[in-house]
């Protein structure tokens, strides 16, 4: 695909409320441009688990509603995006973990740690992200494909995914594209 990924503004942004909270607890984060006034931060893959534990349980934040975990395949990296809300307050936070690609092929998967051991909501979302985008969540209790059959090849939402053409779908494979 020749499309370019979303624009990246290299403007230095001020640290936000949750970024500051994480910094106080010794977790580094980088602020990204907001979408619709929701704070968006980028953190390291190794910091994700402690950061999530803190954000979920700490009485200061209580971001205890994990909306979704989504994987986004860019040209040079794969993002794992976490949307966090709170059941009690009106807070919202978007956490991104960037995993560089380094000439990775379709069958190879980037790895990062899973959060579903302490947050059951992430379980199915991580399985789905593994299935479609191909991020391998380490220490996940049951990391198997969830939407596609178990022996499916490739990760369909990767940009370089070539779909299987066989007797079940050889009719006009590019009909409406």
């Amino acid at each position: 695909m020749t499309e370019k990924p979303a624009e990246k503004t290299e403007v230095k942004l001020e640290i936000g409320r949750f970024g500051k909270f994480l910094q106080d607890n010794g977790i580094k984060s980088k602020r990204q441009s907001d979408s619709n006034n929701v704070e968006t931060i980028v953190i390291d893959a190794k910091d994700l688990e402690p950061a999530m534990r803190l954000l979920k349980t700490s009485s200061e934040t209580t971001l205890n509603f994990l909306l979704c975990v989504s994987g986004v395949d860019y040209a040079d990296k794969i993002d794992s995006v976490y949307h966090l809300w709170s059941y009690e307050h009106n807070d919202a936070l978007v956490i991104k973990v960037e995993l560089p690609k380094n000439n990775m092929t379709n069958t190879q998967t980037p790895c990062m740690s899973s959060i579903s051991n302490f947050w059951p909501a992430a379980n199915w979302h991580e399985r789905e992200t593994y299935d479609l985008v191909g991020i391998r969540y380490l220490k996940h209790p049951y990391l198997r494909r969830i939407l596609n059959p178990w022996d499916w090849e490739g990760h369909p939402l990767r940009r370089d995914y070539k779909q299987l053409i066989d007797a079940l779908n050889d009719k006009n494979p590019h009909s409406f594209r």
Partner: peptide, 8 residues
């Protein structure tokens, strides 16, 4: 029709 998972 052109989805990877749908039988045509």
């Amino acid at each position: 029709n052109d989805s990877y998972s749908v039988v045509q």
